[in-house]
């Protein structure tokens, strides 16, 4: 039963320290969406946290439930991909933002991304992410700031922190279980290979928190999935030459395709 236009989904596992900031940006973004005539909800999927997140979320849900905050909890930890799939299942909106608990949105820009995904019919739209280190007030880098290209098969430069069409993601099977650190890369490649459109909007979507001991960095120190992804998506090495419905798509509402 869809009741909202957008669901901001925050999968979290033992990120008590960052949650208030992420949820504050989510609630502010929902207010902007309402101001522009839409509706929204903020859905937190607690993947079996044990660090105090559960108690914090209980208080926050009591305080902000009226503003659209909902909390769903896994009794045991099931992994990031499972948490995102739970969000896809529980979301009561057509469009879903996946925001990790250590990141936060630029609230003023979400309505623009909503408009972009409606106007393009894309499976996902994404924008620039400012990268910031802990304790610093300025960004030191920006990522997710290029359109989808064949180069994505060699390196993942688009973060999962984006706006998705829930129906299209669900129809493609959602996130792949078992490869949590690389699940978002796998999804991008899977969507592109399935003929779905992935559109870049040249606008800042949010702030990405750079952490030395993040799951990505820990995973990157071990085995990388390149060989596996090559076997899955580009076994014969022709992917860059094959037709693709999405390649170099850049769009801005009011201006069109760039």
């Amino acid at each position: 039963m869809l009741r909202s236009d957008v669901c901001i989904a925050v999968p979290t596992w033992n990120h008590e320290f960052f949650l208030p900031r992420a949820l504050r940006s989510g609630l502010d973004a929902l207010r902007r969406v309402r101001d522009s005539g839409g509706t929204g909800e903020l859905l937190v999927v607690d993947d079996g946290s044990r660090d105090g997140t559960e108690a914090l979320l209980r208080s926050l849900e009591a305080l902000y439930g009226g503003q659209g905050l909902r909390v769903v909890r896994h009794e045991v930890n099931r992994g990031l991909a499972a948490a995102r799939n739970t969000a896809l299942r529980e979301a009561r909106a057509r469009y879903v933002v996946f925001m990790d608990a250590d990141n936060h949105l630029i609230p003023e820009n979400l309505p623009t991304f909503l408009r972009a995904i409606r106007e393009t019919g894309a499976a996902a739209v994404y924008g620039n992410l400012l990268m910031r280190r802990l304790g610093e007030e300025s960004a030191f880098w920006a990522c997710s700031n290029e359109s989808f290209q064949s180069r994505m098969h060699e390196e993942n430069y688009i973060d999962a922190f984006a706006l998705f069409d829930r129906d299209q993601i669900a129809d493609c099977g959602g996130y792949q279980l078992g490869c949590d650190a690389w699940a978002d890369w796998e999804l991008w490649l899977h969507l592109a290979a399935s003929g779905r459109r992935l559109v870049f909007v040249p606008l800042v979507f949010g702030v990405y928190q750079h952490m030395d001991n993040s799951m990505m960095r820990v995973a990157a120190a071990g085995e990388t999935p390149h060989a596996r992804f090559r076997r899955v998506f580009d076994q014969f090495g022709f992917r860059s030459l094959a037709p693709a419905r999405t390649r170099h798509e850049r769009y801005f509402p009011g201006l069109g395709y760039l």
């Binding site: 559960e54 979320l57 209980r58 849900e61 009591a62 439930g65 909902r70 769903v72 909890r73």
Partner: peptide, 8 residues
Amino acid sequence: RILTIDRV
């Protein structure tokens, strides 16, 4: 069973 407010 301490569920969330939403679940209850």
